[in-house]
């Protein structure tokens, strides 16, 4: 009797399957095409661009149409117009070689293309700087900083940063890092709602570095509407049953146009990993 029972048990359990994934055919509506704006402007010459592309249907390959011959103009709070021109070699990318964002100014973007007008506003604040920036093994950090990341092994190579946030609330930060010229696609953003006037720091998680890698760090400030945009962009790209109800990121462009416009003040640093 016991043997019989064991046999049944094994057979029955062998039949039960646990979760499985499968690609399925799921028809989706095709929304009408819209213009997407990536307007990244900064205080560093040559590091400002406005990229215009179009949306495409979900099931097509990722070949996004670029928007050419658009009129792209930024007006600053002094009323000065800056016209961006399409690059000859990169369709849909508009630049202006000597353009620089200045602290504490408001900038207005106006894009005109195929009869459609998209506008946006962004506020620049101040140029941030690191109190401390380090790339190397954990053991090379000062003692008190090592304690805060106790769970990592000593030889783990990381990028550790510290900066001080000025007192009034309303500052937002972002770090974009490049390892050997390859861009790290993780999103590092922070605001000062819980830590205003204090020192903020941490490591760039998800960035794997080896000894002698060359790391470029772009550290910049942005306004509240840009923080809201990138924060909700992260929610949009994470999927699965425990993700938030999906929605388009909170836009700072007119009529909830897709994309963003940012006037950033940047500090760039290059260092070699120890």
């Amino acid at each position: 009797m016991t043997n019989y029972f064991k046999l049944i048990t094994v057979v029955l359990l062998g039949l039960s399957f646990f979760s499985c994934e499968k690609v399925i055919q799921l028809p989706l509506n095709d929304a009408e095409q819209k213009i997407v704006v990536e307007a990244f402007t900064s205080n560093i010459e040559g590091k400002s661009f406005i990229k215009l592309t179009k949306t495409s249907n979900v099931y097509t390959t990722n070949n996004f149409e670029s928007v050419s011959n658009a009129s792209v103009v930024i007006t600053d709070s002094d009323g000065v117009d800056y016209t961006f021109n399409e690059e000859a070699t990169s369709k849909g990318v508009y630049t202006l070689s000597d353009y620089k964002v200045e602290p504490n100014k408001t900038y207005n973007l106006k894009i005109t293309s195929e009869g459609e007008v998209i506008t946006g506003t962004s506020q620049s604040s101040f140029i941030p700087s690191f109190d401390f920036l380090y790339a190397g093994p954990k053991s090379g950090l000062p003692e008190e900083l090592q304690a805060s990341i106790g769970f990592l092994p000593d030889d783990f190579r990381l990028i550790f940063y510290l900066f001080t946030d000025p007192a009034p609330v309303g500052d937002n930060y972002r770090i974009i890092s490049y390892i050997n010229e390859e861009r790290d696609n993780n999103m590092y953003i922070a605001n000062d709602l819980l830590a205003s006037g204090e020192q903020i720091g941490g490591i760039l998680f998800g960035t794997e570095v080896d000894s002698n890698d060359i790391v470029n760090i772009d550290f910049f400030t942005m306004d509240n509407s840009n923080y809201d945009y990138f924060f909700s962009l992260v929610n949009n790209t994470s999927t699965g049953p425990f993700a938030a109800t999906p929605s388009n990121p909170v836009s700072n462009l007119s009529d909830n146009a897709l994309g963003y416009f940012g006037a950033y003040l940047m500090d760039t640093t290059t260092l070699v990993v120890l």
């Binding site: 819209k34 495409s56 861009r183 388009n248």
Partner: peptide, 20 residues
């Protein structure tokens, strides 16, 4: 809510949603 389109931001594909 499923996407009805997609686009590109900073080299990453982003889903476009048109209604809840």
């Amino acid at each position: 809510t499923f996407p009805s389109g997609k686009y590109i931001i900073e080299g990453q594909v982003v889903n476009e949603f048109t209604e809840r």
